[in-house]
């Protein structure tokens, strides 16, 4: 019997696979469904302190190598979030990560306080979505001082709920950003958000495919960048990390753990392998551990740094 459990900032997860923010996760029942399908925990879509409109369709498409999206972080606001999180708690005992986002600095303090009242196990701060222009995104995610300031604002509001900050691969030095948010009080980091944005043009239509014109890149092509980001951050700080980006199989997840991840976020893999992907990845990790004589999966965290 392999011990697949991991402890992340003092919270126990039955296995290291968690739903990444942005995929499914609109409703409590769908979050619970992800856990029923095998995930060790789930992350909500980004929660705003107010209702926020998303982009028009098309918002996403995939190819064999990569996936692109610009959904625009639609959200019905905190009242609905409270109801859905309550519903999740009624149905499911696995840890819940509440992902929060804002347009301005003050928004982060406001939604952090609101989210803390909903009593999630972990709060994840999205400072790195590349698809919402002129609000957040590049300036904040790529600025050492602004990333630290957001972290401090959030930490002040959430009591003893652990905070992880979701970082962008678009920063010139992701390790510097990671260190700045950890120094500002973050308990962990999540690496990485989508890359880009990129642009895809339908040449027959003579128009960009996504209604937002540009969109974040995820999927298999993102994995080497994600693994490298996790590796660099772990080398610098040995902090708890949610490693996410291009994880499609159990082998990918183990690779992410060896680079330094404690939890592994899975999102776009639903496109490649369907709703059942969470349990399948966990099964594949288990098989690999059996074949390789690993009895505790947590022993793999940061293994290549030794």
């Amino acid at each position: 019997m392999i011990d697949l459990s991991v402890e992340f900032c003092g919270v126990k997860f039955q296995n290291p696979i968690v739903l990444a923010s942005g995929v499914l996760g609109v409703t409590g029942d769908s979050l619970a469904g992800v856990v029923r399908n095998g995930a060790g925990g789930a992350t909500t879509k980004s929660l705003w302190p107010y209702q926020h409109e998303g982009h028009k369709n098309p918002t996403m498409f995939g190819t064999e190598e990569y996936f692109m999206n610009a959904v625009g972080i639609p959200d019905a606001g905190p009242e609905k979030a409270r109801e859905e999180i309550l519903r999740y708690r009624e149905k499911c005992g696995a840890p819940l990560i509440a992902n929060i986002v804002g347009g301005k600095m003050e928004d982060y303090a406001e939604i952090a306080a609101m989210a803390a009242e909903m009593k999630p196990d972990v709060i994840e701060v999205n400072i790195s979505c590349p698809n919402v222009e002129d609000e957040l995104g590049k300036p904040m995610a790529c600025s050492v001082s602004k990333s630290a300031e957001v972290t401090r604002l959030v930490k002040e509001k959430v009591g003893d709920i652990p905070v992880t900050v979701k970082l962008s691969p678009n920063a010139p030095d992701i390790r510097a950003i990671a260190e700045s948010v950890l120094d500002a009080g973050a308990d962990a980091v999540t690496a990485i958000n989508t890359l880009g944005p990129g642009l895809a043009i339908d040449i027959d239509a003579g128009a960009p495919i996504l209604s937002n014109r540009v969109g974040g890149i995820s999927g298999p092509a993102l994995k080497p960048l994600a693994v490298k980001a996790v590796y660099d951050i772990y080398a610098a700080r040995k902090c708890p990390i949610i490693g996410t980006g291009g994880v499609i199989t159990g082998r990918d997840a183990i690779e992410m753990m060896m680079a330094g991840a404690t939890l592994v976020g899975v999102g776009t893999a639903v496109y490649y392998r369907g709703q059942e992907v969470f349990g399948e990845i966990v099964r594949e990790m288990n098989e690999w551990c059996v074949e390789n004589g690993v009895s505790k999966i947590s022993s793999l965290i940061g293994k290549i740094h030794a």
Partner: peptide
């Protein structure tokens, strides 16, 4: 494609 979660 079962990703955005809006129709759950």
């Amino acid at each position: 494609m079962g990703l955005c979660g809006n129709c759950c």
